[in-house]
């Protein structure tokens, strides 16, 4: 168990290094930040001076090592556009994205698992077939289109919910939350549905197929043969076994909820890190882009580590350290 965690942490560090390297090598193709930072009236001397100040004249490996050194100390440099430390900007923006991701993740998991179980148990029922057909829409429609449709329906036509922004937020220390005000909560609804719909349908379809598989297993037949109630068979025996493979995919999906928040945040003008990243690309704000990519990879790696540990919690067969008996 401990060996496993240590090994995973090493692997994670390696993943982060590689992500950083790939990201850094890509930045050269995004454009030249100098163009955006200096106005029309620039001289060659100005350009050269700024280039030296930012360290952009140094070869790529040197820049990368400098970035890593800074990142290890929590210093991601200064944003070219805003002139403020990147870490400060990220701390400001992160709560918005994390709250959005948490709500849509919760929505995707609870409803996804619930509907998945329902459609598996009522395999041939009318409702189950309806849900399965409708879920195809969720899988096939692109996020931005769903967002725009929701805005059109609920914000423009019905006027029930706001079409952009976070609403009023309350600051608790450095964390700004939208959970505590009515307008903040209302503002969360449309973006989280937009963001979570794809993951929800995916989880639902996955739970359904896994559950159908589990319901065919001998131990389910044996549980029925012992006369146990359907509810106990379905939830106590089948669901838990269904969740073992579902957890892997769900973990990956939660990571991508945070990563793909970019599109939703753009559609809803949500002041999170995704929107920050989009703006940074337009301005070739290398420190912000680099820090964002590192943050996302840390999240991915972290979530996957948690998923692997969850396996140990759910599946006793993996707890090999336990004293086995023959």
């Amino acid at each position: 168990m401990l060996t496993f965690v240590i090994r995973r942490v090493f692997q994670s560090a390696l993943v982060l290094l590689i992500v950083g390297l790939v990201a850094f090598s890509m930045f050269r193709f995004v454009g030249d930040p100098i163009d955006n930072m200096l106005g029309q009236e620039r001289t060659d001397a100005d350009i050269a001076r700024l280039r030296t100040d930012l360290g952009l004249d140094q070869p790529f490996p040197v820049q990368y090592v400098k970035f890593l050194k800074g990142a290890a100390e929590g210093n991601f440099g200064v944003s070219y556009r805003q002139g403020r430390p990147v870490s400060t900007i990220l701390v400001e923006r992160a709560p918005a994205t994390l709250e959005l991701a948490a709500v849509s993740g919760f929505f995707a998991i609870t409803i996804g698992i619930g509907l998945g179980v329902f459609t598996a148990i009522r395999r041939d029922g009318f409702m189950a077939n309806m849900i399965m057909s409708v879920s195809l829409i969720g899988v096939s429609l692109p996020t931005f289109l769903i967002g725009i449709l929701l805005i059109y329906l609920f914000a423009v036509e019905l006027g029930w919910l706001p079409s952009f922004g976070r609403g009023d937020v309350v600051n608790i220390g450095w964390w700004s939350t939208g959970f505590l005000t009515a307008s903040g909560l209302k503002a969360l609804i449309l973006p989280s549905i937009t963001l979570g719909l794809y993951q929800m349908t995916l989880i639902m379809r996955l739970v359904r197929s896994e559950m159908l598989e589990v319901l065919r297993q001998d131990y389910i037949r044996f549980a029925r043969a012992r006369g146990l109630k359907e509810r106990s068979v379905n939830f106590r025996h089948a669901l838990k076994n269904t969740l073992v493979p579902v957890i892997t995919v769900t973990g990956l999906q939660l990571g991508s909820i945070i990563a793909f928040a970019i599109i939703t945040e753009t559609v809803f003008q949500w002041p999170g890190v995704g929107l920050l990243f989009i703006n940074a690309i337009q301005f070739v704000d290398i420190p912000v882009m680099a820090a964002y990519l590192m943050l996302i990879s840390v999240m991915f790696v972290g979530i996957n580590l948690i998923v692997d540990l969850l396996y140990f919690a759910i599946d006793p067969r993996l707890r090999v350290d336990q004293k086995g008996a023959k």
């Binding site: 297993q217 001998d218 029925r224 043969a225 006369g227 025996h237 599946d315 067969r317």
Partner: peptide
Amino acid sequence: RSLRGAKISMIFQDPLTSLNPL
């Protein structure tokens, strides 16, 4: 269902798959 297990029980072929592993 009320008769199953109560009056008539069943044993299946493969003991490796007849028990819930979790």
